[in-house]
Design a protein around this nucleic acid. Structure first.
Lengths: 341, 341
DNA sequence: TTGTACGCGTTATCAG
DNA sequence: CTGATAACGCGTACAA
């Protein structure tokens, strides 16, 4: 049972001091080419890798950033994380992921856990959380970036898009196609500013046209297929449009929309002939549905990359750290059509 | 700018030694109730959390396990990881995730990186990798668990299911329904024993019935929708079954199957009337497709949990560390039907 | 360019 | 039950 090699072992073999080995590893240019190659050979011989704890203790850095996301089971976060992780890895930074299951208290708990683990940077989803958390992060001097959410005056470093404006644009398009009985299946808005902003956006659009999203036409559901299906069944309980059945259902994300489409099919109705459906996010799912889903395209991967870049700059204490806002695009596919008469 | 509080700060306030504070944190029962509560008050006062690097250095443990998966964008891994992470968290163990993008060399690289970061446990996907990696892990004494893969004589700790048998069962069912021209869209088999085992399973079933999966009827594709669609188009180039067009396409996973179904729709064909399709994994996608997908159900979450339990036992050097094999189930939905004449 | 030597925050051993 | 104190492996002033 061989013990793990240390700097000292390497130094011994190379016939130099541990300081020199450390330099070869961290600032190679400050070591003469000759000794450097000798040290490198010794490193290779032992298959040496620095001890994480020792490094962290001496330098007080871990080169680790933490991301706390609602759940990995939502494809948008999986995508974003993948991109984030790849971009961070290029700079030698490791990503640690924790999940909150859309629960603010659990999120706070996870942040504390990761802080304890010595992460020196955070990626957090959205903006809605206890202000005390922000002050705590700032006091500790741990940089962070908020992702997936953006609004004009966000006081924190953020990389995202305008959920509200995008949802509004979608609802306007639905109206434009002649729909007047419009319902919404939203995500759960508590502790989720993106879900809330999407509801607000739809409200904006309708209010500007004298319509109102009353209680019976707005259902909040967890982001799961069956929940979307249940909500759709409830909204479609009335047998016909002139008995108050909506002609269009705007959904808070693609998963809910997929669930709604499944329910519509099971009810013996046809989308979009009987009822139109729209989604949000444009995950892969959207194009394999039948009808394919009209939705809002969000550049998840690019957001992940941009978040990585911004966080790396913050960690380096650079000045050029402006927020990044992405455009979204309404992609029209088969699930939204003009309102039948 | 307040510096982070240390054991010494806490000890000072509580009027005890740092050793006692450490004990209160790690083995509370060995400290008298009186001093313990005093120490706890001091801890709370400073909002103290132990320094990770110091802990890692002194104890040579990080309470961190690493998982190297192909990609987070495949829903099966997202699910499994979610469950894994939750189960590990219950024991105070943090999960670090890295991705290999189905590239064996990249996987080896990631394992080394995580080793450098001091993870004291690994979760790896499947069994196919350079033997040198296994010996290295054993030399270092780092426990690991292989997931998603299982075969009778696997020499390593593993938690999975028999991919080959499950694929064989699916192909047998397809045959039983009268299909004779059977094609397969497989995942890329290089460095992926699960994908390879599924091909073998289908071959087993056909060979036992005098059929053969020749080159023109087997296409390997990356696990992406478009790749599945492309492959399906290629397989369906012949206009009719009696001109060699397959009547059934067995797919290596649900994503490929979804792509195939989309292509079939775009070609103006009907599934399952013109051509049947089967998947593998039973991700959410399967039930929202139209027709819904006949596939192999795999208990991804339970595998993640079981992997966590096994790894925790290995870390604790417990004896009861037998491999775990899960049953899969063929779930019949709409995409597979009897062969038309 | 290289070496010496100290300190980082914690755990663990051993003595009291 | 508690306190000194010696590691743990590395980074980095400072000196040579």
């Amino acid at each position: 049972m061989k013990a793990r090699p240390t700097l000292e072992d390497v130094a011994g073999l190379a016939g130099v001091s541990t300081a020199t080995v450390s330099r070869v590893l961290n600032e190679p240019e400050r070591v003469s080419a000759k000794t450097r190659s000798r040290v490198e050979a010794a490193v290779a011989h032992f298959d040496y890798t620095p001890h994480f704890g020792g490094q962290a203790l001496a330098s007080n850095r871990t080169n680790t950033v933490g991301a706390v996301i609602p759940t990995m089971e939502n494809a948008i976060f999986a995508r974003g994380l993948q991109a984030l992780q790849e971009a961070l890895a290029e700079d030698g930074v490791t990503l640690v992921v924790a999940t909150s299951n859309y629960d603010p208290e659990r999120e706070a708990q996870q942040i504390r856990t990761l802080l304890g683990r010595g992460v020196d940077g955070f990626v957090l989803i959205g903006e809605a959380r206890d202000p005390a958390l922000y002050t705590m992060l700032e006091r500790r001097g741990v940089p962070f970036v908020l992702v997936w959410s953006w609004r004009p005056d966000c006081p924190w470093p953020c990389v995202g898009f305008d959920n509200r404006a995008a949802a509004r644009a979608m609802a306007e398009r639905v109206f434009e196609l002649g729909h007047r009985r419009i319902a919404m299946i939203a995500g759960v808005t508590r502790g989720n500013d993106r879900a809330a902003a999407r509801v607000d956006g739809v409200r904006d659009a309708l209010a500007a046209r004298g319509l109102h999203l009353d209680e019976s036409n707005l259902i909040e559901s967890p982001y799961r297929l069956e929940a979307g299906a249940d909500a759709a069944r409830q909204l479609l309980a009335a047998p016909t449009p002139w008995q108050n059945r909506p002609t269009a259902i705007v959904c808070g994300n693609d998963v809910l929309a997929a669930g709604a489409l499944t329910a519509i099919r099971d009810l013996g109705l046809k989308a979009p002939a009987d009822v139109s459906v729209t989604g949000f996010d444009d995950i892969d799912l959207a194009i394999v549905l039948d009808p394919s889903l009209t939705t809002v395209h969000v550049p998840h991967r690019r957001m992940g990359q941009a978040a990585a870049r911004l966080l790396l700059r913050l960690r380096a204490r650079e000045d050029d750290t402006t927020n990044v806002v992405f455009e979204t695009a309404l992609v029209e596919r088969g699930s939204l059509a003009a309102a039948g008469k």
